[in-house]
Design a protein around this nucleic acid. Sequence first.
RNA 1: GCCGGGGUGGCGAAACCGGUAAACGCAGGGGACUUAAAAUCCCCCGGGCUCACGCCCUUGCGGGUUCGAUUCCCGCCCCCGGCACCA
Length: 820
Amino acid sequence: MSRADREPYSPSHLEAKWQTRWEEEGTNAFTREELRDASRPYYNLMMFPYPSAEGLHVGNIYAFTGADVHGRYQRLRGQEVFEPIGFDAFGIHSENFALKVGIHPMDLIPRNVANFTRQLRRVGGMFDWDHTVDTTQPDYYRWTQWLFVQLFRGGLAERKEAPVNWCPSCMTVLANEQVVAGVCERCDTPVEQRRIAQWFFKISDYAERLLQNLEHIDWSETTKKAQRNWIGRSEGAVLRFPVAGPRADRDDAAIEVFTTRPDTVFGATYMVLAPEHPLVDEVVTDHQRAEVESYRERAKRTDLVARKKAETEKTGVFTGGHCRNPATGDLIPIWIADYVLMEYGTGAIMAVPGHDERDFEFARRFDLPVVRVVRAPEEEEGAPLQEAYTGKGALVNSGEFDGLAVEEGKARITDWLGERGLAEAKVTYRLHDWCISRQRYWGPPIPIVHCPDCGPVAVPEEDLPVILPRVEDFKPDAGGVSPLARVEEWYQTTCPECGADARRETDVSDTFLDSAWYFLRYPSTDRDDVPYDPEITRKWLPVDCYIGGNEHAVLHLLYARFLTAALKDLGHLDFEEPFTKFRAHGLIIREGAKMSKSKGNVIIPDSIIEEFGADTFRTYLMFLGPFEEGGDYRDEGIHGPFGFLKRLWETVVPTDQLRKGPPEPEIEQKLHQTIAQVTEQLGDLQYNTSIAAMMEYLNAVRSGGRVAARSEVEPLAVMVAPFAPHLAEELWQRLGHEGSVFDGERWPVYDPAKAREETVTIAVQVNGKVRSTVEAPAGTGEDEVLAMARADQNVSRYLDGQDLRRVIFVPDRLLNLVIG
RNA sequence: GCCGGGGUGGCGAAACCGGUAAACGCAGGGGACUUAAAAUCCCCCGGGCUCACGCCCUUGCGGGUUCGAUUCCCGCCCCCGGCACCA
C-alpha cells in the first residue's frame, strides 16, 4: 500500500465515535446491581467543579485529566472504577454573577451545568453520568438539610453570636474576600463589624482527633502540614490573675489568660483584655470610662480583616483597674487593646514585654515596665533588653525558679500555681467552630423553625427539603437581613412541636456544607429515601483516591473529615476518614504567567480539542510537568504529544501490514523496561515521565523506518490508554479485539529478566572527574573493570607515575580512581 | 513576618539510595527522499579553548561534608502559592 492510501489519524472522527459508544454501551456507568455486586471496587474521586458561565477552565481539565488517568489505569489493572462528577453550584459567586447579568440563578445554573456537561464529555473522562449531583437541586440539598438536622440533634450545632463584616452603605454582610483593605469592594465604604446570632458546627470538639488521624492517612505531605497548622494545637496553661479592689474577694473576679509561656509569669507586668471582654465593665474606673468606651466603639467599627493586620501600630487604653500577678503578688495595670482577640484563647493575655515581641512593642509605646525573666546563655543576668528575647535560656528574677531552663520552668511554675488553684495546664487550638450561617439567598435554607415557646426546633425529616423559594428580588437590601426574611409567606409557619405560630430560619447554609458530603451521595443518587445506601456505602467508601487542588487543603478537606467523623459518632457511618488517599495537583500557568480573564490569556479548551483532539490535549497537559507540581502551558509544545499519537497511529494502522511473531530482542528489552517504568510511575502520578518513556519506546520501534511487529505495539496501545483513551480503543479494535479495551485486566506485565541490561556502560573517573567509559557485561567485577580502565589510553595518561591511593567501585555504574 | 513549593540549556523539563547533569519534548540548524512542498527518516543543538585527541567551566549565590554533591548540612538571594498580631 502506498503512503497516499494510508488512513490519516483523525481524532475528531474517532473521538466522537468512541464517546457515543461509551454512552450507548454504558461502558463507564454502573447500575445499582453492579454497585452492589462489585468485587474489586475502586472509588476514584475528583473535586467537583463550580459551573461558571465561562465554561470549563483548563485548571479543571488538568485536574480531571490527572484523576481520570489514574482511574483508567486502575481499571486496566482490573479494578471496577467508579468515577463520578457533579456540580457545586450554590454560593456567593453564582449569586453575584446572577445579580450582575440579571438572570435568576435558578435559570442560570442549569444552563451552565448543561454547558459544563457537554465540555466534560468532550474531554473523554470516564465519568458515570448516571451518578451525578447538582448541589442546588432539592433532591440533593434535602440531604444537606438532613445532615444539619442530624448534627443539631447530636448537639454538634449551636447558635451563638459572632462578628461579621458589615457594610453600612450596602447594608449587608460581606465575606472576608469582599473586604479589600478595610473597605467594601463594591462601594469603598469602610467596613464595620457587627455581632449577629449564627449557627455553628462544633468542629473544635474534633480538633485533636482531626490532628491525630493525619498520622495514618495517605495524603500529600503539604496538605497534611497545612491542616496541622490550621488546627494549630498549642500547649500551655491557663493562669488566673485575681482582680484587685472591691471585687477582689469574689471568686469569679479573676481574669483567666492562656499562655504558652507560663515560665515567664514573673515578667508579666500588665494585662491586656480584648475590647469585647465581659470583664472590662467590671474593672474600668469612672475616671477611665469615657476613654475606654470610645476605644471600644472604635474597635467595633474596624473590620475583622483590618484588625488582624500585624503591621498596624498597636493601640490600646488603660482601664484604670488592676489585678494581681499570681506569681509575684504585685498589682499590675489592666489595659484593653484590639490586638487581643476575643475569639482566641480566653480573650485576655498576660503581657510579658521582655519575652514577647508584640507585648514589647506595646510596652514601649505606652511606657510600661519591662522585666527580664529569661537569660540567654551568653548574656548577663541584668542586661537591659533592647528587644523581646523569645529564645531558650535560664529563668531569672523568678524567685525559687531561678536557674531553671525554660522548658522545665513551664511545668514547674504551672504546678506551683496550680497548688493554689491559680493555674492548670491546657491545650488550645487555633481552629474555631465552623460558622455555617449565610445571610444570603443562594443556598439551602437552614432547616430550623424558631418557636417563641420551644426555641429553635429542627424541621422533621419527613418535611425535608425546605425548598428555597424562587424570589425574583434576592438582592441584599436596607433591612440588613437575609433575603428570605423578606418573604413573609415563606417564613411564616407553625412549630413542628407545639403547633404555635413560628418563623423559619431565614439564613441559608455555607457552600462548604454542600461539598462536605457529596462523595457520600454519588453512589446512591438513585435513592430518594435515604441520603446514601448503607450497603453500597460499606462497599465503596471510604474513597480510594481523591485528587484536587491544594487551595482546598484546609477548609473543604477539613470539613469533609469532620463531617465524616461526626456521622460516624452519630451512628450513620462505620468509618471516620473519608479519603484514604489524597493527592494535590499543581497549578498550571501559560507562557510563564498566571492565566486570567483580564489578561486575556486563558486557554479555550474547545478550540484546542477541535484542532488536535482531546487525546492530544490530555496527553499534553500531563506531559507539561510533574502532575503534583503543575506546569507551564506553551502553545507550541502541543505538537510534541500530537506527533507522538499520530506516529503511534501510523505505526499500527493499517494493522495487516504489521509483522507477525515475537518482538525483536532489542525492542523486547526496551519494551519490558518501558512497561516497568510506566507501571511504576503511573501509580505515583508521575505522568510526564511515563509519557516520555512511551515516546522513547515508540522512537525505538520506528527507528530507521523499521516496520513494527504487532507484539511490539499492542502493549503500547494499552499503556497510552489512560492518556489517550479514544485512540487506544480504536487501535485495540483494529488489532482485532471485541469490546472496550477498558473492559478487562489488560495492563501489560513485564518480565524483569527480559528488561535487564546485558551490557552496561561504566564511567571511569580519576579523582572524581570522568575520563572515560568502558563497556562491560552487567555484573562484571571490580578487578576486571579496573583492568579495562587501565587499558584505556585517556585513563592511563592520568595514572602514569602516580600512586593509586584508593579505588571506589559501584557495580555496573562507576569506577573512581583516587591518585595523588 | 510565618508556613508550603520552587530556582537545572533558547524554552517546558529529566536524573534510582550521593555515582557519566541535561532523558523526553518544543523551538532552531543541517542532510536524505521528493519536480517541489508536506509528511517521514538520519544528524547537530549549555558555554569557552582546540585542526583534532581532548581540556576547562556550568544545576540561583557563598561556604562545608565526601573519592565524588542538582541530590546532604550551614548561611544568604530571588520567584510562586497560602495565612495574617494565635498569646
